[in-house]
Design a protein around this nucleic acid. Structure first.
Lengths: 243, 243
DNA sequence: AACGGTGTGTAACGGCGTGTAACAGGCCCC
DNA sequence: GGGGCCTGTTACACGCCGTTACACACCGTT
């Protein structure tokens, strides 16, 4: 009942290839170029600590450099909704632009590092560089499209399909970062996944178990190995010819 | 079993107060000011017709002037997800910025009119005006926050709570437009509402019937009268002391 | 008036996902 | 090593909501 042997190769560090130059994943915002014009503070964040919290004065955007972070929306009465997981190259804080305070929480899932981009100087610098403003706008549009794609998945897919879609999404982002898209480590807990997918953590567990049972994936706690990626993609796309 | 008498007053047209100046609801984008600098085409749309469809070449943003529109995300295999309802002052098309083609559909729910803002000239004009670029960015951030708020509601609320939250949202937007927030007409079908809320139209029917049964609202087809707005807000906020 | 199509309301049934619980394993601290 | 805590897995009963079906109101057309 244990997938240990199948996952033996996964235990090795995933950083087999050198990560690509740090460019915001959402659009072609070249931070290296930006750094020539504005001061960029490197800030280390420990697992569980927050980059910012809802209600704190908004003063900077952050670019994820190392680690994985979750952003979560909070309601007045204690409800929480994870709105996304941010990895290397992702820009966080854009949702709070135009406000006096951050609108959501950003918490580190593991030890990591973000680059702090103080908002007024950075935005002015961005706007001064050719093309940068358009790229920044495009990055925000991409953020909207991400959310909309999530809505489509959440509104139309079943529990198991959502989990499949989530795995496909993570795999794609790992590939974009130069990692393997066939075996990777989920940086978030089952509870965080479940919250993001609008499910309960038991349901996520069951779905992963079932995907393993039918031979699509191999699971060992947070390690995932895609055995039949094609079928997972098919399931995530709604073509549920399951079992 | 019919709410007719309660809704007698609602039959009168809702345009009791003069609508406010047309300013994009999401941020302070002053279109009147913009019109002095760029050509704005007024385009009439009949009920059921689309402003744009996914896949068509992206060439313009649209500002809703009259009517109500729905935007919906489409998947390759026929799934559809309504991502929002757009009313007077709302800007649509921003999600497609940076793409060659529109990423979603925008369909009129009733006869209406949009102002077409050809993308390259308008954006350049926007960026030339002081503060406009920042406001435009803020409008996009607001769009992201709307989506995130929807995620929070969809991920954490039950069917009836979602319907309540939807009514509260619509009421708030009606109020912002100078209409009554106590009685209004839903411009969309039960099916569109249901899709937006990730429910089935029967469930929406049930929820509305129940809300009427417990005295929170009066319903006559698409006409809604808020009888106990406070309780509806409470339900929409998760404090479900229903029945 | 008769007709069909669309949108809506109601009811019964059943299934997916939830709630609850118990248990196993890993990790930290004592 | 032992205890406590957290995470993850599995089992089982329940309930919300989806599914299906049907009836009705409304509208334009014939």
């Amino acid at each position: 009942m244990n997938a240990m042997p199948m996952l033996a190769a996964v235990s090795a560090p995933l950083q087999s290839r050198r990560p690509p130059a740090l460019v915001a994943a959402n659009a072609g915002i070249d931070i290296e170029r930006l750094r020539e014009h504005v001061p960029v503070l490197r800030r280390k964040i420990k697992a569980g600590q927050s980059v910012y919290r809802a209600g704190q004065p908004f003063h900077a955007l952050y670019l994820v450099h190392v680690g994985c972070f979750k952003t979560s929306e909070l309601s007045g009465d204690g409800r929480e909704q994870v709105t996304g997981f941010r990895m290397r190259g992702d820009l966080i804080g854009v949702e709070s632009i135009g406000l006096a305070a951050y609108a959501c929480d950003a918490v580190a899932l593991e030890d990591g590092e973000v680059w702090e981009l103080p908002y007024p100087p950075v935005l002015r610098a961005l706007f001064g560089l050719p093309d940068m403003h358009a790229r920044f706008t495009a990055a925000m549009a991409e953020e909207i499209r991400r959310d909309r794609a999530w809505m489509l998945a959440l509104g139309t897919l079943s529990a198991e399909q959502r989990v499949s879609a989530f795995l496909v999404d993570i795999a794609g982002r790992c590939a974009a970062l130069g990692f393997s898209d066939r075996h990777f480590i989920l940086r978030m807990s089952r509870a965080d996944m479940a919250n993001y997918l609008a499910l309960k953590h038991e349901t996520v567990s069951r779905a992963l178990s079932h995907l393993q049972e039918i031979g699509c994936i191999a699971v060992l706690r947070r390690e995932i190995k895609m055995l039949d990626a094609e079928r997972i993609v098919a399931m995530a796309s709604g073509c549920a010819s399951v079992h």
